[in-house]
Computed example of a mutant assay.
Amino acid sequence: MKAPERKQRLAVAAGDANPLAYVISQNDAETLAMVQAALETRRLRLAFQPVVLAADPDKVAFYEGFIRVLDVTGRVIPARDFMGAIETQELGRLIDCAALEMGLSTLARQTDIRLAINMSARSIGYPRWMKTLKRGLQLSPTIGERLILEITESSAMLVPELVMAFMDDLQREGIAFALDDFGAGFTAFRHLKDFFFDIIKIDGQFIRGIHRDRDNQVLTAALAQIARQFDMFTVAESVETVEDAEYLRSVGIDCLQGYLFGAPTASPGFAIDAKDGQRTG
């Protein structure tokens, strides 16, 4: 038995540790091992979800790429089962690197799409992530202007000054930035005016059922007004019904994303059929 495991078991036996905390710790350790193994064997995929124009939902503004980790049987392991455990670990940085690498490769192959890739503010300054970005930008001269980096509101608020400097450097390369889950992380407005995000994605908790929820209508209108004040493009997340989509369009939201327009899929609509050159999906 390894020393850390022996120490944990002795602590539980002696009553010095909360048994529930021990179980959670063990589950986290198993999760980390599972994700590590998936990284080492490249059992990773990107799933793509369309973000459509509110004024014309048949037109895709860009796609968002979601990292998918597979177990040994090929089953997708939900991100909620591991993201919390790896977020503060180096493993989280490696997942960000893998997602970026796959996203850049997709942009190199598909030269007529824009793609958003998620990253944590904790990956800013991580040498491997920056090397992955620089290498990927060299694949095609248009990749930078078609890449969108999404940073969650809560993540951005961890190190706002560092995020601002990071964004300023990469926006010079043509890269756009989206503030994900806007409204969920309580961004300090004194920072928001300095961030210069290109896109604001309004958190789904305000969007689901909005056509019949007056409180969420008021909150979403306020968030959208803030975005417009700072010349930021607005995206409503988690759009699931026609009624919600119609309401959001009526109040001037720019883009819509959600299951109403397509679930994340490894076989997205931008795939080209080699036989007849037509789009599939």
Rank of each mutant, 00 (worst) to 15 (best):
A3I: 14
Q8D: 12
A14M: 10
N18H: 11
L20F: 12
Y22Q: 05
V23A: 11
A29N: 04
E30A: 10
T31F: 01
A38G: 04
A38C: 00
E40Q: 12
A47W: 15
F48A: 02
V51M: 10
V51N: 08
A54K: 03
P57G: 01
K59T: 04
A61P: 00
V76L: 12
M83N: 12
E90S: 11
R93L: 14
D96G: 02
D96T: 01
T106M: 03
L107E: 00
Q110D: 15
I117N: 02
I117T: 07
S120M: 10
R122S: 08
Y126I: 08
P127W: 07
M130N: 15
K134V: 08
L139P: 03
I143G: 01
I148M: 03
L149N: 03
E153Y: 09
S155V: 09
A156F: 01
E161G: 07
A165P: 06
F166T: 01
D168N: 09
Q171S: 10
A178L: 10
D180W: 02
G183Q: 07
I200S: 05
I202T: 12
I207Y: 03
R208Q: 01
R212V: 14
D215G: 08
C255G: 14
Q257S: 12
F261E: 01
G262I: 03
A263K: 15
T265K: 07
G269A: 05
D273Y: 08
K275R: 07
T280G: 10
T280A: 03
